[in-house]
Design a protein around this nucleic acid. Structure first.
Length: 426
RNA sequence: GGAGAGGUGGCUGAGUGGUCGAAAGCAGCGGUUUGCUAAACCGUCGUAGGCCUUUAAAGUCUACCGGGGGUUCGAAUCCCCCCCUCUCCGCCA
């Protein structure tokens, strides 16, 4: 959400920057509804002021022995008018709020202009995609062949876009999560956090998923509880309606969680394998920073996420998303893409963003800077998506016989050097 | 799930229908005193929105005492619903 005064006072410049990310704001509509709102508020407040003044006279007049019945009747009628006006203010205000909360963040000046994913700009590349002496298989073949991944039974017990893991397949997911968490806590200075996997709608508003993107989420019936699409939501909202000490920033938190996404509208995309699931696991990095720090912290956060891939010996590239491909709340986003032989392509495994004050303004997260307080800057990124890292390990380290050699860094966590064919479960 | 107690400004904590946006204390900020620190003393100290104004400052008005609704000329204060915290019971990992 944007600062109302700033937005109102820089409408044309803002409209231009929003246009760069493919969002067209109807300026006339905005101005009209803003004017309408202000008129309604002014009228109501003037009437209230009048009522408050008259109301204060009543006890004095009573003390003086006057009859105040007529005045009270008059004020009662005024109260009815105020109630009607407030109803209108509420209605106009709600329309205005909908317009305002539906406007995406402004891209940072360093973000390249572009219309879509094709215009993203590669900023660096690490490692070389492995050359195979045999035909590399995709994980959706390797996993079931090894007996560590099962789509059929997942479809039976739950549905499409779910998977069951067995044996070293299950352990690989757990080992990756522990490996990532240990790296970030012990080497990068993050504090591990285990948040609830269900949150209320206020939290989803705070990070920007609501009101616009409710259709992407799972909601528990007859409650105000939603399954989190990412740990970003509970962790960022930890400090909703709080003021942080500027000297203590940046604050760095990491969290492992399952993530739940309805994937509405992604029919036909990544239908095979576990690339796009309704439930997946992720280690998330979240930072709270002062405005003067946030862009330096974005670089560090991205490097922290890349470090995981380096340790695992996986080839990747990092791209900066162009104005047309960024998420709703972000001011700047780096995507890290890992090489997947099964797809013969780089595939997103982490997305690292600086939201500046966009989320903080919605969630009312402030930072004390000396005597003043202002909105904090929030950042987050995957460090990494565990399921997709699982895919990267299995596909990149596959052998001709279908087994998977485990990279050195992961062996202590997996307690195995190789994953070979698992005995069939019945 | 049942019974009871409670939710007030950064914190502690008064306030049970009429200048209460809210006493007092602490913390913070500015100042005086002091060789420095400390102490003492004086002052200051919420957020959002409207009007006015150059989109500043000042001024002024409105709203906010967990959230929503109601009673009333007038609500932190009375009534109803909801949420959260604490204690006890039940159930449970």
């Amino acid at each position: 959400m944007h600062d109302l005064q700033f937005f109102r006072n820089n409408l044309d410049a803002i409209a231009e920057r929003l246009g760069a990310r493919g969002f067209r704001i109807d300026l006339d509509h905005f101005r009209a509804i803003d004017t309408e709102r202000r008129a309604a508020v002014t009228e109501s407040e003037n009437l209230k002021s009048e009522r408050n003044k008259a109301s204060q006279e009543i006890p004095q007049r009573k003390k003086a022995g006057e009859d105040t019945t007529a005045l009270q009747a008059e004020l009662r009628a005024m109260g009815d008018r105020i109630a009607a006006l407030d109803e209108r203010v509420k209605e106009v205000d709600e329309r205005f709020r909908q317009v305002l909360t539906g406007i995406p963040n402004l891209p940072h000046e360093s973000v390249p202009a572009g219309g879509g994913a094709d215009d993203n700009v590669e900023v660096r590349r690490a490692g070389d995609p492995r050359q195979f002496t045999f035909e590399a298989k995709a994980h959706w073949d390797l996993g079931p062949d090894l007996g560590i991944l099962d789509f059929e039974r997942a479809a039976k017990i739950t549905g499409a876009r779910f998977a069951v893991y067995y044996g070293l397949g299950a352990r690989l997911e757990r080992a990756l999560a522990n490996f990532m968490l240990d790296t970030h806590t012990q080497e990068h200075g993050y504090t591990e956090t285990l948040p609830p996997f269900l949150v209320n709608s206020a939290s989803l508003f705070g990070t920007g998923q609501l009101p616009k993107f409710g259709q992407d989420l799972f909601k528990c019936e007859n409650t105000d509880l939603w399954l989190i699409p990412t740990a970003e939501v509970p962790v960022t909202n930890l400090f909703r309606d709080e003021t942080l000490d500027g000297d203590a920033l940046p604050m760095k938190l990491c969290a492992f969680s399952s993530c739940f996404r309805s994937e509405a509208g992604s029919y036909g995309r990544d239908v095979r394998g576990i690339i796009r699931q309704h439930q997946f696991q992720k280690v998330e990095l979240v930072k709270f920073a002062r405005p003067d720090q946030s862009y330096a912290e974005l670089e560090k956060l991205t490097a922290d996420a890349e470090r995981i891939l380096q340790k695992l010996g996986l080839a990747y590239r990092t791209v900066v998303l162009c104005t047309g491909d960024m998420g709703f709340s972000s001011a700047k986003t780096y995507d890290i893409e890992v090489w997947l032989p099964g797809q013969n392509a780089y595939k997103e495994i982490s997305s690292c963003s600086n939201f500046e004050a966009f989320q903080a303004r919605r969630a009312n997260i402030r930072v004390r800077m000396g005597k003043k307080s202002e909105f904090a800057h929030t950042l987050n990124g995957s460090g990494l998506a565990v399921g997709r890292t699982w895919v990267a390990i299995v596909e990149n380290y596959q052998q001709q016989d279908g087994s998977v050699v485990i990279p050195e860094a992961l062996r202590p966590y997996l307690n195995a050097e190789v994953i070979s064919k698992h005995g069939k479960l019945n």
